[in-house]
Structures are given as structure tokens and as C-alpha cells.
Nucleic acid binder design. Structure first.
Length: 110
DNA sequence: GCGCTGACGCGAT
DNA sequence: CATCGCGCCAGCG
């Protein structure tokens, strides 16, 4: 029973990823209440029949597309991401980083 | 039960 | 960057 419940939580989390943005397997797992279960998210995605599910917005924590470069699935994911304005280079989506902000924070005066 | 396989992640080297 | 090792765990021989 609980198993199916978690499954639904994961699918719900994926459906909440905003158009034109991306998330990661591990992030989805955490949002679904099962941190550390990235592989479960991947498995559920691979078996989901839901057509409207924005599976293409889920990437590795590195921003890399999980499929093998050149595979049909890889190409399809790139196509879908680009169609919603997400920049994909070398099979990867650059995630918003703010290294300068972190630097400023660490060096900020008391 | 045992080993292997993943649409994974993270810290260490 | 690239590699390793280890953690995680639902299926399928």
C-alpha cells in the first residue's frame, strides 16, 4: 500500500516541475519524501505510462541527460527541452549557479 | 536467498 | 574534468 503511495508522490513531484525548468532524480525523490531514492525515481519514470508526464525535465544532479548520447531517447529529451526554451549543450543543461553570491557570503563582513 | 543490473548521487582522490 | 567506492533498492533470473 505504502509503496503505491510513494509512487504517486514521485509522479506528483515530477508533474510540479515548471515548464522550461529542470530538476534531478535525487531532488524529486527528496521532494516526494524519500531522500536517497534517486534510482527509484528513475525506475518509476521508465515504467510510467503517463503521456503528459514531463519526464524530460528530470536530469542527473550534474545536469546531464541520463540517456546514452545518440540514443533515440536522448535525442527526444533534447528535442523536448529545447522546445520549451531550455538550453542543452553536450547533452547537458547548465543549472543556475551563483558562485559569486556564495563567495560574497563567505567574505561578508560581520 | 544470491548476484546483477540500472533514466542515480556524493564525497574523496 | 575522470574514476572509484559506496550507498540505495526494486526487479529478474
Amino acid at each position: 500500500m505504502g509503496k503505491n503511495c510513494i509512487n504517486r508522490q514521485i509522479l506528483a513531484a515530477i508533474r510540479r516541475i515548471p515548464y522550461g525548468t529542470v530538476s534531478a532524480y535525487g531532488e524529486i525523490a527528496a521532494l516526494a519524501g524519500v531522500p536517497g531514492r534517486a534510482r527509484l525515481v528513475a525506475r518509476i519514470l521508465s515504467e510510467s505510462e503517463d503521456d503528459g508526464l514531463p519526464w524530460h525535465r528530470v536530469l542527473r544532479s550534474s545536469g546531464q541527460i541520463a540517456f546514452a548520447p545518440g540514443s533515440a531517447q536522448f535525442d527526444e529529451q533534447v528535442r523536448r527541452l529545447q522546445s520549451e526554451g531550455v538550453a542543452v549543450k553536450q547533452g547537458r543543461v547548465k543549472r543556475d549557479r551563483k558562485p559569486l553570491d556564495l563567495d560574497a557570503f563567505l567574505w561578508a563582513p560581520d
